[in-house]
Design a binder for these strands. Structure first.
Ligand SMILES: [Mn+2]
Ligand SMILES: [Mn+2]
Ligand SMILES: [Zn+2]
Ligand SMILES: [Zn+2]
Lengths: 159, 159
DNA sequence: TGATCATATGCAACTTAGTTGCATTTGTCA
DNA sequence: TGACAAATGCAACTAAGTTGCATATGATCA
């Protein structure tokens, strides 16, 4: 599983593995598309409730469950900051007035197609090196980062 | 001048021309680069003061000056919304947690190069139609809008 | 298995961008 | 010069994100 590889990597680097840190990595590795901090917090809260309701034992354990239920937005923001520093996440801005986060991991650099009608966000892998190099030549800028976001209608929403 | 053409166009379409509306158009037509709502408000306030301090008569007039000095952020936001509807402005998001606005007018569609060191924002005219068409073919999306923002170091900041 | 200690967490209070409702003012046109 | 719709100011609000501080906890070692 992708999440456990990320966790192992962090542990090897000497970082602490807390239930919330692990859970955020797991949530983002489920590939629901780039999530906001509130998306993440809401999923953590739900996970806490679900596990609490079930009478069976569960991989997550009761103590983690209690902590998921109480998880605070500050913690989510701080974990996001940590995971960004570790270059495990990428910050994505679709002009919504809030950020989204995508697991980088072994996925190559990519962009997004957002449907203006149904909101679905599709990955767009795109080899853009030639493109960027020609801009560097023409402008004398040294390009360090770029963001390309496309908006339109997905096949289903074109009617 | 570019600003007066925009104003005339609005007048012809039957929209009211208020001092603040006109001033915002003028500020943005001075090409200081894409401005935030606060940038705009601050410049309006300064203009009010400057004109007030000067003892000479001035193209702007005293009554406009008083209104510039009192201009409220709500008004700026509402003018921005109006000018966006009229497709006079374009909204630009550089991932700063706030929007910037650029006059569209007769300037062609373009992108931006932002210097990570000194913050300068340079226009980047870029013919990207072929590029977009090939994405449409490969993805079955119909693309309606796109944003491409580049970040790096300007010539001066490359040391 | 504890004790230790740096790191992670929860909570409350704060900042900043942007929005809304409402009373008042003003640009336009007859 | 009215009349009236559109524009404005102000205050109160929302939502994303940040900060300080007291408490809790994961990893390490005895
Ligand atoms: Mn993605
Ligand atoms: Mn520009
Ligand atoms: Zn769709
Ligand atoms: Zn620079």
């Amino acid at each position: 599983m992708r999440a456990s590889a990320v966790v192992k990597n962090l542990k090897d680097k000497g970082f602490r593995i807390t239930p919330i840190r692990k859970q955020i990595i797991e949530i983002l590795s489920e590939d629901r598309g780039p999530l906001t901090s509130l998306d993440i917090l809401t999923i953590i809260h739900k996970t806490g409730k679900k596990v609490n309701e079930s009478t069976h034992d569960h991989a997550i354990g009761v103590s983690s469950c209690i902590r998921f239920a109480r998880c605070n937005k500050t913690t989510v923001y701080r974990q996001i900051a940590f995971l960004l520093e570790q270059e495990i996440l990428e910050e994505i801005n679709l002009g919504e007035g809030k950020n989204r986060y995508d697991l980088v991991e072994n996925k190559a650099h990519h962009h997004h197609l957002t449907c203006n009608n149904c909101g679905v966000i599709k990955d767009l892998p795109l080899e853009d090196n030639d493109f960027l190099q020609s801009i560097e030549k023409n402008t004398n800028f040294r390009i360090q980062k770029h963001s390309l976001e496309l908006f339109g209608l997905c096949l289903g929403c074109q009617k």
